[in-house]
Amino acid sequence: MTPFVYTGHPVRVVFGSGTIQTIPEEAERLGLSRVLIVTSRSQAATSAAVAAALGSRGVGVFPGAVMHTPVGVTETAMRLVAETGADGVVAIGGGSVTGLGKAIAVRTDLPQIVVPTTYAGSEMSPILGETKDGQKVTQSSEKIRPEVVVYDVALTLDLPPSISGTSGINAMAHAVEALYAVDRNPIVELMALEAIGALFRALPQVVHDPKDREARTAALYGAWLSGVCLGSVSMALHHKLCHTLGGSFDLPHAETHTIVLPHAVATNAPAVPDVMARLRGVLGTDDPAGALFDLAGRVGARRALRDIGMAESGIDLATERALARPYPNPRPLDRDTVRALIARAFAGEPPLSV
């Protein structure tokens, strides 16, 4: 066996249905007495219910989280943190809300309770991506990693099918890249394969019948495991490209991941035959990249960057920014390779190993 290092991270996970009711208990366990809820406007009803349940422990709700965690929004939220004297944060929503909670935590080291309502998976990681002046910059710190994550299947039942599909594939991307991470290990590999299989089977059924609790449970389980992968090992080409594209052109996060993933897998495939063999097994196909491209079609997702707001003139800019700073990747990258990947993703063409 290849030598490896594995570090278990101390995030408390509460998983089930109706688990949102445990938030006051979790706040008490953390010793919190002045809790600020951060959320988005789409989660107004859920946030109001949690605020009511917190009672005197709750000091306010900030509903202004938006995509890509703009620094300006975080600064507005920080003013409310100061005004209320908050000693902890409850983040209720998707990846954008989780990002805002993390942005507050890295500036204050306040404890976080995160309640995901999508399949983003970022709630399990110590990684924060923030956008300023048209560029998205990531950082990693243990201050960013939440203390508690509460997964409530019931909160996902009303997640629209279109968002469910792309959010789930976004989560799969974390698990896929964990398989060929420079610091991969057999424990994370087991979790990654389990996550990929769970999501690959569940997402089409979730889109077909959004109220299917069994499928929703499997998808949320897969998203949790994918998040553990994201928070345990390094990411590579796929995540670098998605951060570059999202931050540069303000593209929707999950949709960008959904479009890019098959192309990133195809590009790295020649360098990781062992990983491709594992993916063939869990996906039940000889063409993992093609299966991921087909999955996007099965869940009704758009498969071209041009269809989600990117201009063709951005291909060269994205290529330059993606190569501007070196990062670990199983295959050495050059301008022609990266540009060809982005161009195929832009046009919505099937993935092709190059």
Results as ranks from 00 to 15, higher is better:
168 G>T: 02
156 T>D: 10
185 N>S: 08
160 P>V: 07
169 I>M: 14
171 A>K: 04
180 Y>E: 10
183 D>W: 07
159 L>F: 04
166 T>H: 10
163 I>P: 12
179 L>R: 05
160 P>R: 06
179 L>C: 04
170 N>E: 08
160 P>A: 05
166 T>A: 12
154 A>M: 12
185 N>V: 09
168 G>Q: 06
159 L>Y: 03
186 P>T: 03
165 G>R: 08
170 N>W: 09
162 S>Q: 14
186 P>G: 03
154 A>D: 15
182 V>S: 14
159 L>A: 01
164 S>V: 07
170 N>M: 08
174 H>G: 00
179 L>N: 00
174 H>M: 00
163 I>A: 15
164 S>H: 01
186 P>L: 04
176 V>I: 10
181 A>G: 03
160 P>S: 08
171 A>N: 03
161 P>F: 02
174 H>I: 06
186 P>H: 05
163 I>Y: 12
165 G>E: 01
184 R>D: 13
168 G>F: 01
157 L>S: 08
184 R>Y: 11
183 D>A: 09
167 S>G: 11
165 G>W: 02
165 G>Y: 07
169 I>L: 11
167 S>K: 09
180 Y>K: 11
156 T>F: 10
177 E>A: 00
155 L>C: 12
186 P>V: 05
179 L>M: 06
179 L>A: 03
180 Y>D: 11
166 T>P: 10
181 A>L: 02
158 D>A: 15
159 L>W: 02
170 N>F: 09
158 D>T: 15
175 A>D: 13
154 A>S: 15
171 A>P: 08
